[in-house]
Nucleic acid binder design. Structure first.
Length: 489
RNA sequence: GGUCGGUUAACCGAGUGGCUAGGUAGCGGUCUGCAAAACCGUUUACGGCGGUUCGAAUCCGCCACCGACCUCCA
């Protein structure tokens, strides 16, 4: 398998040639959501980013096993040990539901939204609550190796001890001494040897709902443990790619590294990939900041921040228009521009399928193809890929206008290229296509268009205009092209 | 305060030591009975100040502003 895919490794801060450990297999682990409220635009970013990665790897011929967790154990609201009510439990109280009902409810909408965004489902989607035993096994291993200690039924990771042999903070560029002086002092930390130590197992207070028996206490696993456990369980002690949002680098991924390294004596992840944030008014969109727009709202337009609804593919295109390591700022203007741009692209696909070949060709499809691959190989540069595709759009439209020509072999090659890059890899599907009524509508439209043509031929413009205007009223636009009349809803 | 990143035209957003990114919007034109679409042409750029260089928006330094992380977060 010849591959020139370079990906930016957050660990080394360099673009590196991607070489899987056991080609043609690729192991990919992604940090999924905590299921306690509706998915928002921010969640769409990693979903689309790593869907692009998965699709491209599949296209290159790799067999990808992707694992994305669902956090359903509930993390503490804060470190205030006494009254720690986790987010899922809190929501469960608010909505008067069982914690697992909350998880189920929001997991379902998450899945629905991601399907709308045309992302491929992960190969395995493990839940933290289903891996309590494995998490406890990992804690035991870490305890055996001497990198954790037990206090009052809770188990904490000994960061200082770990740092003696391995380096803590590698990924996020943090130095332990700085952490020592800068870690915020919180209540309920007196159990820990050091404030930067983190919990592997937490003893539950009596009112805590989500808890499990363990050798140390009735309690629940620590925040970072599930990813260490489930990634290595399904992908092996060492696996290829770990992805997630940049905001997870510290402490989540840092702690994951510490846990896995402490237990296995080596690092588990070969390539770390982090997507940047979606901002709104220049600030990160986050549940905790309350400045988020849910995906359901975006798709329906029902949100005071929105001037209109945006289709899932518009959102997908919007995300793909920026490189995944840049922040992307939300605005209605930007989304409207994305909508128009996507429309231009989809129209060109339809035009392409209608194109009549000539003897000569003024396009170099192999060269275009090469450029498209080069863009993706350069750390998944989707905006550059799109710019190349838009060059092709311009060419396609010019063929219709007669200023460019394409022969049949180039035409087939171009169709294949569009199919590969737009549908298969970028995952931009035609949202209008596919319903059963489509054909009937198409046939009816042909008749109507012919009637209008007859009127025009008779110079009966009032009638032809009437047809066009009435169609306009029900949302159908007619477009008189050189090669015939086209219409769209 | 510490660590890291950003500042590109009306908006979004790439890239780069010398070569028009792209999308959206605007303007002018072609086509059309008219319109829409399409096509062609075109207007606003690289935060500020220095330095390196034949040449810098791109490399270096300083400054300003913005953001992320340091607490759960995609």
């Amino acid at each position: 398998m010849q591959n020139k895919l370079f990906i930016y490794n957050s660990m080394t801060k360099k673009k590196e040639l991607f070489i899987p450990l056991h080609a043609p297999f690729v192991g990919l682990y992604l940090c999924g959501p905590t299921a306690y409220s509706n998915a928002h635009l921010g969640h769409a970013r990693p979903a689309v980013t790593f869907d692009l990665l998965t699709r491209y790897l599949l296209h290159l011929g790799y067999k990808v096993r992707s694992v994305r967790n669902i956090t359903d154990v509930g993390h503490l609201e804060d470190e205030n040990a006494g009254e720690g009510e986790d987010r899922i439990t809190k929501k469960a109280h608010q909505e008067q539901l069982e914690p697992m009902e909350i998880v189920e409810k929001y997991m379902n909408t998450y899945h629905k939204n991601l399907e709308q965004l045309n992302t491929l489902p992960p190969s395995i989607e493990p839940r933290a609550s289903g891996h309590i035993i494995e998490q406890q096994e990992l804690i035991k291993e870490i305890l055996d190796k001497g990198y954790a200690y037990i206090v009052n039924g809770s188990v904490y990771f000994d960061v200082l001890k770990y740092n003696e042999k391995y380096k803590y903070g590698k990924l996020s560029g943090r130095v332990l001494e700085d952490l020592q002086s800068n870690t915020r002092v919180l209540d309920g930390q007196e159990e820990k040897k050091n404030p930067f130590d983190f919990a592997l197992w937490k003893k539950a207070s009596p009112e805590h709902i989500m808890k499990w028996p363990s050798p140390w206490s009735i309690g629940f696993p620590g925040w970072h443990l599930e990813c260490s456990t489930m990634s290595t369980k399904y992908l092996g002690d060492v696996f290829d790619i770990h992805g997630g949002g940049m905001d997870l680098m510290f402490p989540h991924h840092e702690c994951e590294i510490a846990q896995s390294t402490a237990a296995h004596g080596k690092e588990s992840v070969r390539y770390w990939m982090h997507n940047n944030m979606i901002t709104i008014n220049g600030q990160k969109m986050a549940r905790s900041l309350g400045n988020f727009i849910t995906l359901d709202d975006l798709f329906s337009g029902k949100n005071k921040l929105l001037t209109q609804a945006y289709s899932p593919m518009t959102i997908r295109f919007f995300i793909l228009q920026a490189h995944y390591r840049s922040t992307v700022d939300f605005s209605n203007e930007a989304l409207q521009a994305a909508e128009k741009g996507l429309q231009k692209l989809t129209r060109a696909i339809e035009t392409l399928n209608r194109l009549k070949p000539s003897e000569v060709s003024t396009i170099d499809v192999p060269k275009l193809k090469e450029k498209c691959y080069a863009a993706l190989d350069d750390d998944l540069n989707s905006p550059i890929l799109l710019s190349h595709l838009f060059d092709a759009v311009k060419f396609i439209n010019s063929v219709v206008d007669g200023s460019e020509k394409i022969n049949s072999s180039s035409l087939e090659a171009l169709k294949a290229l569009f199919n590969t890059f737009i549908l298969d890899i970028l995952g931009l599907k035609n949202e209008a296509a596919g319903t059963n009524d489509e054909k009937l509508t198409g046939d009816l439209m042909k008749i109507i268009i012919q009637l209008r043509q007859d009127a025009k031929n008779n110079k009966d413009f009032p009638t032809s205009d009437k047809i066009r205007n009435e169609l306009n009223k029900i949302g159908i636009t007619l477009k008189d092209r050189k090669d015939g009349v086209d219409w769209e809803k």
